[in-house]
Design a protein around this nucleic acid. Sequence first.
DNA 1: ACTATTTATTGATCCAAATCAATTTAATTA
DNA 2: TAATTAAATTGATTTGGATCAATAAATAGT
Lengths: 197, 197
Amino acid sequence: MDKSDQSVERVKKDISRYIELPEEEWLLFKSHLNFLALQKGEFLHKAGNKTNRIYFTLKGCIRTYNLKDGKEKNYNFHFEDDWYAPYYSILTDKACSLNAQAIEDTELFYLTIQDLNQMYELGKNWQKLGRLLAEKVFIEKEKKEEQLRFNNPEEHYKLLLMEKPRFVNRVQQYHLASYLDISPETLSRIRNRLRNQ
Amino acid sequence: MDKSDQSVERVKKDISRYIELPEEEWLLFKSHLNFLALQKGEFLHKAGNKTNRIYFTLKGCIRTYNLKDGKEKNYNFHFEDDWYAPYYSILTDKACSLNAQAIEDTELFYLTIQDLNQMYELGKNWQKLGRLLAEKVFIEKEKKEEQLRFNNPEEHYKLLLMEKPRFVNRVQQYHLASYLDISPETLSRIRNRLRNQ
DNA sequence: ACTATTTATTGATCCAAATCAATTTAATTA
DNA sequence: TAATTAAATTGATTTGGATCAATAAATAGT
């Protein structure tokens, strides 16, 4: 598979959820898209470098994580039809602190922030897209913070089960534990408890 | 004091940091601004209502917090020249989960999201402002999450000391503790430790 | 299908921070 | 400025989850 019509249509459809998309602007956007395939285990990018790409996931799963004192902490997971960008790095123009690794065989499109900025220049529609996407990641983040602060691990896991079934179904337990900021042992015990009740 | 030239100029100056601001657009924006003064202890808004205002702080301090099981958890503090909006509520059009209270005598300007949306319609400059502000709160949030996850309370407090001196200097210790997600006793012990070394 | 390796489970121990309780210090208010 | 209330400190105790350790189950590789 590559930049087939079918794949590109999925991007178009997603963008159309946010803004009106005149055909000629879409064609310009489309021309910026590049295809990328990763095998399970391969890296999209590693911390320490500046990255300037915005990704759209076609299939598979990307895990992002921070590394500190030799320990990994998972930051997020991105599945098919999710956008992903090392936002903080791009916005602040600092080296990226996230590592991004495929934990399934994964296919993506990407464009660069420079290309996106070019789109922003086209007018308020594209600025609006930028605003809406920024607002969306903000909202996600907001939710996660609240859940981290107000719920104990068990409640947090239950919420995840409801709100992000893909996380629970497709991600290994020790990765999930790291995402929830608990040890794998604790997550195992939580699941055990939930099973027996 | 009220909508004096001097106060309004501070808003203009701040917006100009983000976008070019033609005089006639500024005049329109300015006409949307309303003045509000609160005494220490008074509330800007309470959880459970929909709020649609975006605030610019002229002086004083606003504390925002969540309430769960009768316990307060401080979410943020806003001082002079800070923007504040119950972003999540405005963006999702859900009832606000935050309470906002003046913890010093406080003066603010506000405009409604409807007014801001009207500004957005003027063109890409204003959409850009919206985007940049959304990106800014996102970055703030991102930083805080990272600090919460990777640092123990003592390290977290030291970072706050460096990065947000206004928090440490002007906010009561038990409010700060709640913001840092630790008990007041723990914060007191941290400060004690730092004093004796 | 068998082996090696990785991941998940279960139990025992430990520890950082929470909670509980009492006292001192600081801030309000009469 | 004295009296009252609120906030901060300090000590004792408890606890939820981490860490350590050993085993079982699952996955990947041959």
